[in-house]
Amino acid sequence: MSGPNKNYDPVEVTPLHADEVDRTRDEALEAFRAAPDLAALQEAKVAHLGERSPIALANREIGALPPQGRKEAGQRIGSARKAINEAYASRLAVLEAEHEQRMLATEQVDVTLPWPAPQLGARHPLSLISEQIADVFTALGWDVAEGPEVEAEWLNFDALNFQPDHPARQMQDTFFVEPAGSGTVLRTHTSPVQARSMLTRKPPIYVICPGRVFRTDELDATHTPVFHQVEGLVVDEGITLAHLKGTLDHFVVSMFGEGLQARLRPNFFPFTEPSAEVDLLCFVCRGDSVGNPDRPCRTCGSEGWIEWGGCGVVNPRVLQACGIDPERYSGFAFGMGLERTLMFRNGVQDMRDMVEGDVRFSRQFGMEI
């Protein structure tokens, strides 16, 4: 095998020839100079500085030269590559600056222009008022009790002293769950929660029972087939009607403000005896419109009082049905509609506004937690 050709002249290798190196360098410089944008400059870089570029291929030829020829060729190639790299870096800086200026011009945002503020969320006012009522009574040491909305007929009626022929048990008032005779209904009031509390707790019992109830009413401005109630129950030794009156007065002040009170009118409910309707002193005229034609009140019709709910002393039959000794314990119960309370307190005119899901209605009540 013959040894390396020490007399080989590198000038004779075309890629390493001075004129060829200069031409390769000049082509690269011109390509970089002519690149109109960053994408074109990247293509020119691959063509003139990539692994298959002329300058890279010429650099590979240096290794095949005899030792005495490598220095001069290396200096020639290195000088050309340096010039090409500097030209690329210079053009890159210019094009990047131009690109940034274009972006600032085309994507500029005028921060002084008006913009639509994001709408705040809102909780449903019935949820708010239910929690407010619960807070009033938990502050007194009461418990919040809950029960199922699909309820046993016995708990919804029989345990509460509703006789088999009571009108409320008919299809005109109650949603019965199929099949017929299943003994299951959609609860018509939250009173079954009171019955469950008496069956599962031992006196003394102090519970407040908010919840959703169902009756076969048509939806209109003052009625809805699905509505909400809150009921209170106390069972303890020595409980009288006076305790009920004091509790209702505190409830009224907490919900409607100082200076208001409740009035009890005799009535009949199967689960209480004696029973009474709860009237609320008109929170608009506070009774000043009664007999005063100069100050009529649309809220109470100048009667001075507004019907709010029902109440009474727990019927001994209800206590006995729930396993509580009526000879030792007595109690009271009351119940109000949350929709009616909201209409009184916030001036809502149409109950349908509460169920139609229009966020504009709920938004006015805010996000109180």
Rank of each mutant, 00 (worst) to 15 (best):
R123T: 07
G121T: 05
L65K: 06
A35W: 11
D26L: 12
R23Q: 01
A87H: 04
A39R: 15
A83V: 00
Q68K: 05
A56F: 03
A93H: 00
A18D: 09
L113H: 08
G50T: 09
G121K: 08
N85S: 10
V109I: 08
L95E: 01
I62G: 07
D19L: 07
G121P: 10
Q108I: 02
A28P: 14
A47Q: 14
H99C: 04
H48K: 12
R70I: 05
G50W: 08
A18P: 03
K82H: 14
E72T: 12
R25G: 00
G74N: 08
Q42V: 03
I84H: 03
G121H: 09
R123N: 09
R33S: 07
V111S: 00
N59S: 15
V94T: 14
H99A: 14
K45W: 13
R60F: 08
T112M: 10
A39V: 14
D19T: 12
P66C: 01
G63K: 11
W115C: 10
V21E: 12
P54T: 01
P66Y: 03
L38Q: 08
N85Y: 01
R70S: 04
E20W: 00
S90F: 05
A31Q: 13
R25W: 09
I84D: 11
R81L: 07
A64T: 01
L29K: 13
L65V: 06
Q75F: 04
E98R: 11
R81H: 00
R76W: 04
G50S: 06
R23A: 09
A35R: 06
A28L: 12
E96C: 00
R33Q: 01
L120Y: 06
A97Q: 10
D22L: 09
S53Q: 14
R91K: 13
G63D: 02
T24Q: 12
P67N: 03
H48D: 13
I77S: 07
L95Y: 03
V111R: 07
S53I: 14
A80D: 08
T106A: 11
L92H: 13
P67H: 00
F32Q: 10
A64G: 12
H124N: 05
A35Q: 06
R25N: 09
G121S: 04
L92I: 01
L120H: 06
A39E: 15
A56L: 07
A97R: 15
H48A: 14
A87G: 15
L29S: 09
P67S: 03
P114D: 13
E61M: 11
A93L: 03
R25H: 07
R76Q: 06
R91M: 02
H124W: 13
V94F: 05
D19F: 07
D110I: 05
L29Q: 14
S90T: 11
N59Y: 04
L92V: 02
R25K: 15
L95Q: 03
G78D: 12
S53V: 13
